Computed example of a mutant assay.
Amino acid sequence: MTLWERIAAILESARDATLSAVMDAIEERKRRRDAAVFSIALIALSAKMAKADGIATEDEFAAFRDFFEVPPAEEHKVRLVYDLAKADVAGYASYAKQVGRLFRGEEAVLEDVLDCLFHVAMADGVLHPGELELLHRIKDAFGISEACFRRVKAAHVGLDEDDPYAVLGVAHDMPTDELKKSYRQLAKEHHPDAMLARGVPAELVSIAEHRMAAINEAYEKVMAEREAA
């Protein structure tokens, strides 16, 4: 089955046409590494976030559609989940917690979701304070580390005002040999093959490129500072 056929199967298995029922159907399947599960979770949270921050939802839907590379013939499936999320009375927090439970223990997957949400939030080219606060709350609902959040943020807004050690998730006094090992592990985790293996749709693997660029920039900055010391 294609990604879109699996998404359709999940939608059809829901007990009724509500976002709550669709999310429950995902949890019942427990197919964490299915790209369709990742996709529906991402679509739902994108819509809930767009509704919560008060920014024009159509612009954000267009941004999601474009970076997700939705085939025209399949857009109605994405639109259905997106509209269910907008119509649902529950706030984004309850769904963020549900997604956090769905991928519990898989911080890398939740970091992938957060990265995509940053992209949607910046559909207008600006990360508004309210959007940043909302993303912080989603991070807390996911239960992921501050290092993950700062790494994703740096990928979208730059490293200029952030601590490169925090972006790498290492202590300032970490020995250089251990720092190099930690960097290599990060590079391995954010490789496109690793993302595909954990259920990220192939259409979204490109998100690894700008995140890896932020990791590389932070590492190079730390190493330059150490060499100059």
Score class of each variant (00 low, 15 high):
residue 3 L to A: 03
residue 3 L to Q: 08
residue 4 W to V: 01
residue 8 A to E: 09
residue 8 A to I: 08
residue 13 S to R: 11
residue 13 S to I: 05
residue 16 D to W: 00
residue 17 A to I: 04
residue 18 T to K: 06
residue 21 A to C: 02
residue 22 V to L: 02
residue 23 M to E: 02
residue 28 E to V: 11
residue 29 R to C: 04
residue 33 R to I: 12
residue 36 A to V: 07
residue 37 V to F: 05
residue 38 F to E: 08
residue 40 I to G: 01
residue 46 S to G: 12
residue 48 K to T: 02
residue 49 M to L: 15
residue 51 K to T: 01
residue 52 A to Y: 07
residue 53 D to C: 10
residue 56 A to P: 00
residue 57 T to V: 13
residue 59 D to S: 15
residue 59 D to C: 13
residue 61 F to T: 08
residue 61 F to Y: 15
residue 65 R to N: 14
residue 67 F to M: 11
residue 67 F to D: 10
residue 69 E to C: 06
residue 71 P to H: 10
residue 72 P to A: 12
residue 73 A to G: 00
residue 74 E to L: 00
residue 74 E to P: 00
residue 75 E to A: 15
residue 76 H to V: 07
residue 77 K to Y: 12
residue 78 V to S: 14
residue 79 R to I: 03
residue 80 L to P: 01
residue 81 V to Q: 04
residue 84 L to Y: 04
residue 85 A to R: 08
residue 86 K to C: 04
residue 91 G to T: 05
residue 91 G to L: 09
residue 95 Y to I: 07
residue 97 K to V: 06
residue 99 V to P: 00
residue 101 R to A: 09
residue 102 L to P: 12
residue 102 L to S: 10
residue 102 L to N: 09
residue 103 F to V: 10
residue 105 G to E: 11
residue 106 E to S: 04
residue 106 E to Y: 05
residue 106 E to H: 12
residue 107 E to D: 13
residue 107 E to F: 07
residue 108 A to E: 11
residue 111 E to P: 00
residue 111 E to T: 10
residue 112 D to T: 02
residue 113 V to N: 06
residue 113 V to D: 07
residue 114 L to N: 05
residue 114 L to R: 04
residue 115 D to V: 06
residue 115 D to E: 15
residue 116 C to P: 00
residue 116 C to L: 06
residue 120 V to R: 04
residue 120 V to C: 10
residue 123 A to N: 03
residue 123 A to C: 12
residue 124 D to R: 15
residue 124 D to M: 10
residue 125 G to L: 10
residue 126 V to I: 12
residue 128 H to F: 01
residue 129 P to L: 09
residue 134 L to A: 11
residue 139 K to R: 15
residue 141 A to T: 01
residue 141 A to H: 09
residue 141 A to P: 00
residue 141 A to V: 00
residue 143 G to R: 07
residue 145 S to M: 08
residue 145 S to D: 14
residue 146 E to G: 01
residue 146 E to H: 04
residue 148 C to L: 12
residue 150 R to G: 08
residue 151 R to Y: 03
residue 152 V to A: 14
residue 154 A to K: 05
residue 154 A to D: 00
residue 154 A to Y: 02
residue 154 A to I: 02
residue 156 H to K: 13
residue 162 D to T: 13
residue 166 A to G: 03
residue 167 V to P: 01
residue 170 V to Q: 09
residue 172 H to K: 11
residue 173 D to K: 09
residue 173 D to W: 04
residue 175 P to N: 12
residue 175 P to I: 13
residue 178 E to P: 02
residue 178 E to A: 15
residue 179 L to Y: 06
residue 180 K to D: 10
residue 180 K to Q: 14
residue 182 S to E: 15
residue 184 R to K: 12
residue 185 Q to N: 08
residue 185 Q to L: 06
residue 190 H to I: 05
residue 194 A to M: 03
residue 194 A to H: 03
residue 196 L to Y: 04
residue 198 R to Y: 06
residue 199 G to A: 03
residue 199 G to S: 03
residue 202 A to D: 15
residue 202 A to Y: 11
residue 206 S to R: 14
residue 207 I to S: 07
residue 210 H to V: 05
residue 210 H to I: 09
residue 212 M to P: 08
residue 212 M to F: 06
residue 213 A to K: 11
residue 214 A to C: 01
residue 214 A to M: 07
residue 215 I to Q: 00
residue 218 A to N: 01
residue 218 A to K: 01
residue 219 Y to G: 01
residue 219 Y to H: 11
residue 220 E to M: 14
residue 222 V to D: 01
residue 223 M to Q: 07
residue 223 M to R: 08
residue 225 E to P: 06
residue 225 E to W: 12
residue 226 R to Y: 11
residue 226 R to W: 14
